[in-house]
Design a protein around this nucleic acid. Sequence first.
DNA 1: TTCGCTGCTTGATCGAAATCAAACAGGATC
DNA 2: GATCCTGTTTGATTTCGATCAAGCAGCGAA
Lengths: 227, 227
Amino acid sequence: MNRLTRPGARERETLLNSAFLSQLGVESVTALMEMVVIGSLPARQMLFREGDPAETLHCVLSGYVRAYRLDPDGREADIALYRTGDLAGVSAVLHGHRYAASAQVAETATLARFDLRRVRELASRRADLALALATTLSRQLENAFTCIADDRLHTAPQRVARYLLAQCPQDGAAANFRLPFQKSLLAGKLGLAPEALSRAFSSLRDHGVSVRGRLVQIDDPETLRRL
Amino acid sequence: MNRLTRPGARERETLLNSAFLSQLGVESVTALMEMVVIGSLPARQMLFREGDPAETLHCVLSGYVRAYRLDPDGREADIALYRTGDLAGVSAVLHGHRYAASAQVAETATLARFDLRRVRELASRRADLALALATTLSRQLENAFTCIADDRLHTAPQRVARYLLAQCPQDGAAANFRLPFQKSLLAGKLGLAPEALSRAFSSLRDHGVSVRGRLVQIDDPETLRRL
DNA sequence: TTCGCTGCTTGATCGAAATCAAACAGGATC
DNA sequence: GATCCTGTTTGATTTCGATCAAGCAGCGAA
C-alpha cells in the first residue's frame, strides 16, 4: 500500500471519465471524490484475498489487476482482468460482504480506493449511485457470460483469434498492434497454460497472424473470423 | 406465452419471498406488484434470444430456466440456471439493452414478468430498487465466478462431487436426496456432455455415491470433499 | 400387451490441452 | 563483454472429455 495520496489532475480526469463515475450526478461524484484515495502499486501486490471482509472498492486508473480463485493445491484460475476504468471488488459491495476472489496487481497499477462502508451507505440513499453500481455489475456479468461460453465452445486457437479480433481497431482491414500486457497474463485470461497460448499463436501463423514479442500483425481479419 | 394472468395468492407469496422483492421498501413492492404479469410455460419454450432488445424482466416462481449461448454451428453452452426466486434477463436491464444470452424453460415453469422500461424508470428514482437489482447482479456474478473457476480447476468427477455436496442438507453426515431436475440439464450446468456426467457418476461410486434415477445417496461427504 | 419416444448408460475412438522438462531469448545488472 | 533472471517457446507424453454409435430402461399411448 505505497504512498496513499489525494488524486492529482491526471487521476481525477481518468476517474471522472470511467464508466462508473461518468454515469453519476454531481452530488454523488463530489461525495465519492471527497473520500477517494490514490495509490500506486507494483506488480504482484495483493489487493485482497478471497474470503476477506470486503472493506475497499478499487478502481483501476492505470495498469492491470487480475482476479483469480485458488484451489486447495494452490493452482490459480483467472476469473477477470480489470483495466483502466474498471472496478475491482464490486461483486462484494452488496452481497456477502466478503470478496469473491483474490485480486493482484498484474502490471504496475494506479488505483483509486473507496471505503466500501461509505459507498454502501451512500448507495442506499442515492439511486444514481446504486444504478451505476448495478450497471457496472451488468457489464462484468456479461463479460463473465462471454468467458464461460468461450471456454466451453471454443478451442485455444479460436479463443486467441477472437481475442485478437477484439483488439483490432477497425474491422475488415489488416492490422498490427501491441499486446497490452504479458503473454502469460493473456494466457490466464483466456484460461490457457502459457504453453498452450504459445502453440495457439504458432497455429495461427498459417492463418495470417505473425507475432514477434508483443507485436502482432494480422493480415486478414476475415480469415480469422472464420475459425 | 400461455394465458397471462395476475398473480394468485401462491404466486404473490413466492414473489414477495424472493431475494429480489424481499429486499425492497413497500412503495417499490407495490409499484412492481401492480405491473407484474404471471405466465405458465412448458419446457423448451423460449423466453428470449441473445441479441434481442430487452423488454421483459423474468422472475422464476417455479420450475427452471436455462440461459445459454450459441456458437455459429448451433452448439449450445449453458451459462446459468435460474430457479425459484431468481431473475432471468437482469444483466440486460441496465447495460446494452439487449439480452446477453438466450433463455429457455428447462422444466415447466411459472414466471413473473415485469416491463423492463418501467423497471428501469422506477429504479432511476428509487434507490432501494436499484440496490436490489445490484444485489441480484452481485449474486449472479459470484455464481459466474464460481462457474469459471470450477471449469478451469476441476475435473468432471470433482465438479459433480462439489455439486452433490452443495445439495447435501447438513454437512458431515450421510445424506440422500433427489436431483431437482434432469441429468442432462445438470450436465449442461456443469459444462459437461451428458455422457461425461454419466461417467462421472459411475466413477464416484467408488467414493460412496450411489445414483438410481434421480435418487442420490452419499455415504460419507467427507470422502467426497477430498476430491 | 406392443409400440415408440425420450433420457440415460456404455463402449470405442479421437483430439485438445495440461503437464513435465528442457532449451532459448531478451533485459537488466555487474 | 559475461551473467543472471524471467518470460517464452518447443518437444514428448499423458490425461481428460467430446464425439460417434449402440444398447437399454422407463413410460405414456394405442
